[in-house]
């Protein structure tokens, strides 16, 4: 039998452990200081980023309200297909409703949810659709970025009557929208999410502009 292992804890170990703790504390202090120093800037960047994209859909001269503050939230899994709250930006001019932009999610992308901005005017017509974030396969699922860069603009002017609601699908499913070569799931997910945004708009158009900023529409 081997000798009983040494049970006493050596001095070096305690000093060593203390040193590690000190390093950890120093790291924590440094990081929390940097976090505090960058937080405001990171938030401002994020707002700037989303504002640029909102302005692409509803140009700044067509509205006069603070669109980043004039928001409501939608929580309507049965209409929008996502359980996450959807931010709705409201554009007004001289107090009159101009358009809403839904920051919605296509939950059934090929490799995870696709974040979209869907702009709809008061008549229920699409002003445009932008993809904010996605994880689709480069070269295949992200063709709306390059190879098929005219795909997203085709949503402009469409509504639930054009094409008729049952043809709001990709061609493979008997609809009016083209799919991408080698990738059907991504366009299918986007078309579905846009259709859902339009359906939500139709169902809730009465309350969309009347609701208090910050309130939740169910």
């Amino acid at each position: 039998m081997a000798a009983k292992p040494e049970r006493t804890i050596s001095r070096e170990r305690i000093v060593g452990a203390a040193a590690i703790v000190l390093v950890a504390i120093a790291a924590a202090i440094a990081l929390s200081m940097l976090d505090r120093a960058t937080q405001a800037r990171i938030e401002r960047n994020a707002q700037q980023w989303i504002l640029e994209r909102l302005n692409q859909l509803v140009p700044a001269q067509e509205r006069d309200n603070d669109i980043l503050a004039d928001t409501v939230y939608a929580r309507s899994p049965e209409l929008l297909g996502t359980s996450r709250p959807v931010t709705i930006y409201r554009a007004r001019k001289a107090g009159q409703p101009v358009a809403v932009i839904l920051h919605t999610i296509a939950p059934d992308g090929y490799r995870g949810p696709i974040e979209l901005l869907v702009a709809i005017d008061v008549e229920g017509r699409l002003l445009g659709v932008e993809v904010l974030r996605h994880q689709e396969t480069p070269g295949l699922g992200d063709q709306f970025r390059n190879r098929n860069s005219d795909w997203l603009p085709k949503f402009r002017g469409r509504s639930l009557d054009d094409p008729p609601q049952q043809r709001w699908a990709v061609r493979n499913d008997g609809g009016d929208f083209d799919a991408f070569t080698g990738a059907t799931i991504t366009p299918r997910a986007i078309v579905k999410a846009v259709r859902r945004a339009l359906e939500f708009h139709r169902a809730k158009r009465e309350v969309l502009f009347a609701a208090e900023p910050g309130s939740i529409i169910r």
Binding site: A27, A30, L31, L34, T38, N45
Partner: peptide, 18 residues
């Protein structure tokens, strides 16, 4: 390991901000 993770987090925060 602590030092490397700290530096990486710091750089990540700085990149995010600037």
């Amino acid at each position: 390991a602590l030092i490397v993770t700290t530096v990486v987090t710091a750089i990540s925060l700085a990149t995010h901000a600037w």
